[in-house]
Design a protein around this nucleic acid. Structure first.
Lengths: 129, 129
DNA sequence: ATTTTTTCGCAACTGTGTTGCATTAATTAT
DNA sequence: ATAATTAATGCAACACAGTTGCGAAAAAAT
């Protein structure tokens, strides 16, 4: 059982940089647009998959059904990830932001066993407000 | 300005019945599967759109990015809809259920103006537990 | 420098959701 | 009841996100 080594490639570095600079969660098309032909569409998807596996990034599904990826900031890499934070989708600018600090409280009815939660809030962000 | 009248068709009745009997949120493919060729794929989408417009149904995006529709139960049709309830997606059976009663509390950071919320929880439902 | 292993690009494909348009079915008016 | 009107349907075609196979290219290991 040999572990797959983590390889650093041009595309990967570039995509991580885009995500870091943006600060918001980005979809493949959004990344593609910002990286003007650095690599193929498929490569973007594969790099994002790898970054996800390596725990550098987390994934969220927007209200538009679009998959977006964002750099993990508030994640504890040693003790499992904290991906149950809130994502905010701005109606005006369309940006999806991670609200790391916000942790919603909720009580599930008896019988339901929670495993993962995804909170998607839409509204107007501070910049557009 | 004449209003578009609400028309009752075979496809519409059939699809509403499927949703009522299921009790869970269903996607177009799931509805299609249960209705064995009652109508075209496109018609299902259009009927669901109409039911949504008429406020009989609400829409939710799953963690799989799939759009699902469910009959509105806890909605107050006179004073606007309450669609901000929690949806629970079971890892085992794949069913998406509306938890009408569960209302999560959360405090947004200053500057953010909430308009709509979508809470998607995944885990194991009572039946599969 | 050579081998090994991973990543990349391309083409092709799957599946969800949408649109235009001619036809059909449900209301409404006669 | 019948004709006129208006909305719903089916079909074909399309748009676009996401995936897969495979040979070529690029990293890392030897």
């Amino acid at each position: 059982m040999k572990e797959k080594q983590v390889r650093s490639t041009a595309a990967k570095q570039h995509i991580r940089e885009i995500l870091e600079q943006s600060g918001t969660a980005l979809s493949q098309p959004e990344i593609q647009e910002q990286s003007e032909g650095v690599c193929d569409r498929v490569t973007v998807y594969r790099v994002l998959d790898r970054l996800l596996q390596e725990g550098e990034v987390h994934k969220t599904i927007g209200l538009d059904g679009m998959t977006r990826y964002a750099i993990c900031k508030a994640c504890d890499h040693d003790h499992g990830h904290q991906h149950d934070h809130v994502h905010f989708s701005c109606e005006v600018c369309g940006e999806v932001t991670c609200l790391d600090k916000v942790i919603p409280e909720l009580k599930l009815p008896r019988g339901y066993r929670l495993k993962e939660a995804s909170y998607m809030i839409s509204g107007v962000c501070p910049t557009c407000n």
